[in-house]
């Protein structure tokens, strides 16, 4: 899966997790930009990504990611392992 495909899946997951069908995200989108992105929905996002891509984030990755782009970086890293 290339980065574009991964990101498009991530964008779909964001719509579901943040409960907003019209949500448009970019790699720089972060909790600051998305109102529904709080500490609880962050866990939803992480677990949805883990389930969808069958990967496990490390503690540092999932509590340290500053924006979606960084999460995609980690996903790409795990997917290539």
């Amino acid at each position: 899966m290339d980065r574009e495909e991964v990101f498009s899946k991530v964008a779909d997951i964001c719509k579901e997790v943040f409960d907003d069908e019209s949500l448009e995200v970019t790699e720089t989108s972060s909790a600051k930009d998305i109102e529904a992105w709080d500490s609880l929905t962050h866990l939803d996002l992480i677990s949805a990504l883990e389930d969808t891509f069958q990967v496990s984030f490390t503690l540092e990755e999932f509590s340290g990611a500053k924006n979606l782009g960084e999460l995609v970086n980690y996903l790409m890293k795990h997917l290539s392992e």
Binding site: D44, F57, S63
Partner: peptide, 15 residues
């Protein structure tokens, strides 16, 4: 799920 515990003090995994 240890990362969940350390990041969010969740004592059981999300699943």
């Amino acid at each position: 799920h240890a990362p969940m515990y350390y990041s969010a003090k969740l004592s059981v995994s999300v699943n």
